[in-house]
Amino acid sequence: MMMKMVLRRILIGIGTLWVVSVLVFIGTSILPGDVAQIILGQSATPETLAALRAELGMDRPWFVRYFDWLGNLVTGDLGTSKAGGASISSLIAGRLGNTMFLAGIVAAISIPISVALGLLAAMYPGTWLDRIVTFATLSLISVPEFFIATFMVLILAVQLHWLPAIAYLSGNESGWQLARALAMPVITLVIVVSAQMIRMTRAGILNVMNSPYIEMAILKGVPRRRIILRHALFNAIGPIVNVIALNLAYLVSGVVIVETIFAYPGLAKLMIDGVQTRDLPLVQACAIIFCATYVVLILIADIASILSNPRLRQPK
């Protein structure tokens, strides 16, 4: 039963990815201008355009190119960057590593903090602790990340010179230098993702706290702490894990603003560069990776919900 459910989810995931691949391909094929035009820019002439287009194989109809591309994708060949001529796998590999590294650090810091603060706020609703947490998270959710990032750069880098303004990795820095370089992007992202996770943890648990069995437990005289950790948390885990999964996916695909402001060579920034140079294979590969990340993380979250809540194992 369980396996069947998981298998179904995986199949749905693959289906989603396929739909996305079609959308991505169509979307990138109908963008105004073409790679040859963008590469040559102001200095394009009809002859150079024709020569470059032919070299890039752009004279073939789009559906032929789509199935070519899909076939290569399934076999793990992401193609060659039209702009630089480098293989896309090699372009992406390093960037994906950087992005995962940043996301990993942020996740390792933000998830424990968020769940702990969310639980604390839920344990003592209405107290000064809960109010502070609620006020702080609401404020931080409302402030866009580029504001937080730019503000921190102005204070910590430009005025105080404590931290570097950009997360510029030279590749051979010591642990301390690395920590300094990454400090500001990590702090920015931790603030951005934690606020939401704290709110959802608190809300999820308080929601469960209204159910009849919690009332029963309260009437039995079980201490509030024990009710939350023992009874409420496991029933609230589904929504919490989903929020965590969404935020992790955001850390992989949505950090473009933070990557841009700190000039961090991550995957999202590579995709933006790809869009600017109309490097379609690169944009397509990035889009598919981002989509796959979402699908996989949501899949994990779903499975976690199913595991934590036996009722979900029975299809209605």
Partner: peptide
Amino acid sequence: IEITAITDPVARVNALLSGDV
């Protein structure tokens, strides 16, 4: 020498002001 680019104009100026480039 190291040659790089910071595409965001604000970030580029910040990096200059803070001495990172």
